Amino acid sequence: MNLQKSLITIVLIILNFIASNIFAQEKTDVIYMINGETKDGKVTGIHETSIDFVYTGEDLTYELKKSNIQKIVFASGRTQIISQPQVQTSNSPTSTAAERKNKLAVLPFTMVSNDQGLMSEAMSGQIQHAAINSFKKNTHQIIVQDPMTTNALLLKNNLDPNSIKTMMPQKVAELLGVEFVVYGTANISFEGTRSYGSSSTTYKDKTEKDKDKKENKSSGKEFTSNNSSTVSNYDTSIELNIFSDTGSNLYSVSRNGFGNSLDTYDGTLNYLIKRCPWGSKNK
Rank of each mutant, 00 (worst) to 15 (best):
F23I: 13
I14M: 08
Q4C: 03
L240I: 14
T230Y: 04
I46N: 08
N35M: 10
I69M: 12
I8Y: 13
S50C: 01
G45I: 00
Y251P: 14
E48P: 02
K214V: 15
Y234D: 00
P85F: 00
S76I: 09
N133Y: 03
T185A: 14
I22C: 10
S76C: 09
D160N: 15
Q80D: 11
Q116C: 11
I81S: 07
L272K: 02
M33H: 04
F258P: 05
T44F: 07
N2H: 06
A105G: 02
N256D: 05
A131F: 06
T246I: 14
T224H: 05
D205N: 15
T166G: 04
E174P: 03
Q88F: 13
T9S: 10
I72V: 10
D212E: 14
S261V: 13
M1E: 12
E215V: 01
L7S: 10
T139C: 07
F109E: 06
N133G: 10
D146K: 14
D52R: 12
S198T: 02
S195W: 02
S76L: 07
L104Q: 10
S261I: 03
P161A: 06
I273M: 05
G177K: 04
R275F: 01
G220T: 13
T38W: 00
Q84F: 09
N249T: 09
E174L: 08
P93M: 05
V182R: 07
S134F: 09
T185D: 12
L250G: 03
S6A: 15
Q25R: 06
L7G: 08
S218G: 12
T56W: 03
T28R: 05
H140L: 13
